[in-house]
Design a protein around this nucleic acid. Structure first.
Lengths: 340, 340
DNA sequence: CGGGCGTCAAGAAACGTTTTCTAAAAAACG
DNA sequence: CGTTTTTTAGAAAACGTTTCTTGACGCCCG
């Protein structure tokens, strides 16, 4: 509107009668610069409302104090919690985050990563992203510092933050077993998802350990969407020998199962016990009332950010670290003893 | 890991035996540069895997091709839909978006806006943000181009994208009136929210037009959270002369009302008809089954982005534009004729 | 045949910082 | 009092681009 040009360090220099370099040093509180002139310069800078250009600084310092965050699905209620955790520590460490939504689409993810690299982010956090293909791998290499969350590579060893899928699945299975279920359906996530695979493996192991029905029919290949839950419920309901309990791939998926159950005139937990994963906010609603495996999402986000920042600061020294968070079975009303 | 230094335009210049400026022109497909050398340079650039630094470019061009998006609450299921709309057109126009979560907190918003300015974004889109205080106003001025969404200033005239609150409220009220409700409760959003105030005004006008009970007791001062919905339901249930229907501030709020109703042993729609606003995904779940006013969120996001980009391109010429989207009453099972 | 013009390419300046290097003044030291 | 060291401040280079200016060359036209 009024005066368009941003005021630069140069303006401060002229106004204070000092050199640009002196101003820079004075404002950064570095070097040997006389206390008096420092005060003076800081005064001037303040009254002028000077704000250094992040861009110019990034160009000069070759570091942007920015970290890229790639999330598979912002619309999933679990995502904002992770992001919040990341943001908390990023803020604290003086970093900004650049948030990208990939929709779980690899092409899109590549585009986003490329854009982040062009923007010279200091590092990336990848929530449930693709990690294997050579193209992705090349981009990760170029990134230097990155942390994977909830999906790790089986071929490469990276910094990783995840949940204890063995323990979580064990808790879930033990609980259903203790209620008397012998036939437990399982909706598994995408095959590229290491978390999904680990849980599936744990499920199979527990089925064997507990001597439950081991039937490939009981595993439904799904993903993390409501739609997939709806399909899964139609599938399980159509089986001649139905399971009495179902473990969903996550809460959103469980809600789909639940919804389809209502549609089919089936009741939860009477006809099916239902067990989710994540513990999103609405899982606790009385109309939903979902027993679920709670993930400490905010803590995991914070953990990922801390891991990343350490990695950035120590400049890729040291072997990859993995941080695994415990889960907590949160019991609500969607599970009961089988009637059959 | 291997070779850390990024390859620059200079590397391309040397490799191709041309000057930096020529390379720049060749890659930008601009100016007069021989078709042959252009091909040659583009070839070299490709094999070298050259990618221009967004940062350097931004510094030189004084424009970052980045737009800041401030959202009050990423966790609200409606937010990602707006964002998606914004992202769609931003992507198409070659812009990246910088997403910030403000929690509806003014201090936080100021900090985020400051950071965006330091980053020299070309413009901002503010979803339900503070717009009035002098401090915010100064930052908006400095931003140059910005678009408000769902919350406008009553003192300033800005580019704005919103929904037709009069028409929407009219549709809702007419619908409840046609079902036979004479006493309609209303949860209003925060007083700083222009949308909330417009709806409240519309509500009052409609109450008068339709000759319904006009009782200040029927208006509950809430906000857009589940918690506020819970409090509202306790409030309405505690009235000696209860309403027979309640209009929530939005869907998330309605879900809170619904949940508290279950807690209090009240049934919806038998004891209370309930009407939301937004039409978030879970509103259509059979367990929720919420009649609600649908907002075209994705379209609104896209509209905001288009408005902003036009504003940026035409460099703040022209009077402020307002784009108002119509709403659509989506009838599900949470409303019925009153029993009393 | 000389001047103007069009085409192409190179050179140099600029964007706003930080940092390195240099210079001057002040202080310390013998 | 001269020399060295320390403190302070300024000049200049650099980060990686784009764009403005300059220059060389060939061609057309009077």
């Amino acid at each position: 509107m009024t005066n368009d040009r941003r005021i630069t360090i140069r303006d401060v220099a002229e106004a204070s009668g000092h050199a640009v370099s002196t101003v820079s040093n004075a404002l950064a509180d570095k070097r040997h610069v006389n206390e008096e002139t420092r005060k003076h310069i800081q005064e001037i800078a303040k009254t002028l409302g000077y704000r250094p250009s992040t861009i110019a600084r990034a160009l000069r310092m070759q570091t942007s104090s920015t970290i890229g965050v790639l999330v598979a699905d912002v619309a999933n209620p679990a995502s904002p919690e992770f992001i919040r955790g990341i943001d908390d520590v990023a803020q604290r460490e003086g970093c900004n985050i650049l948030l990208c939504n990939t929709d779980g689409d690899e092409r899109r993810q590549i585009g986003q990563m490329q854009a982040l690299l062009d923007r010279r982010v200091d590092g990336m956090i990848l929530l449930s992203q693709h990690t294997e293909s050579p193209e992705i791998r090349k981009l990760l290499d170029a990134t230097g510092s990155f942390v994977l969350v909830q999906r790790r590579s089986h071929r490469f060893r990276d910094d990783y933050v995840g949940s204890d899928n063995m323990q979580g699945t064990r808790d879930s299975m033990n609980y259903l077993d203790s209620l008397g279920h012998r036939r437990i359906g399982f909706v598994t996530g995408p095959q590229q998802s290491s978390t999904a695979m680990e849980r599936l493996e744990a499920y199979e192991q527990l089925v064997s350990e507990l001597g439950l029905d081991a039937d490939p029919e009981l595993v439904f290949q799904g993903d993390y969407t409501i739609d997939s839950g709806i399909r899964a419920m139609h599938y399980f309901a159509g089986l001649s020998d139905r399971p009495t309990a179902i473990i969903a791939s996550n809460d959103v998926n469980a809600i789909g199962l639940q919804d389809a159950a209502v549609e089919l005139g089936l009741r939860i937990p009477e006809d099916f016990s239902l067990l989710g994963c994540d513990d999103i906010e609405i899982a606790s609603l009385r109309r939903i009332d979902l027993t679920t495996l709670r993930l400490p999402k905010r803590e995991m986000g914070a953990g990922a950010a801390e891991l990343l920042i350490r990695r950035i600061r120590t400049k890729k020294t040291g072997t990859p670290r993995e941080v695994i968070f415990p889960t907590h079975l949160t019991i609500r009303g969607s599970c009961a003893a089988p009637r059959r």
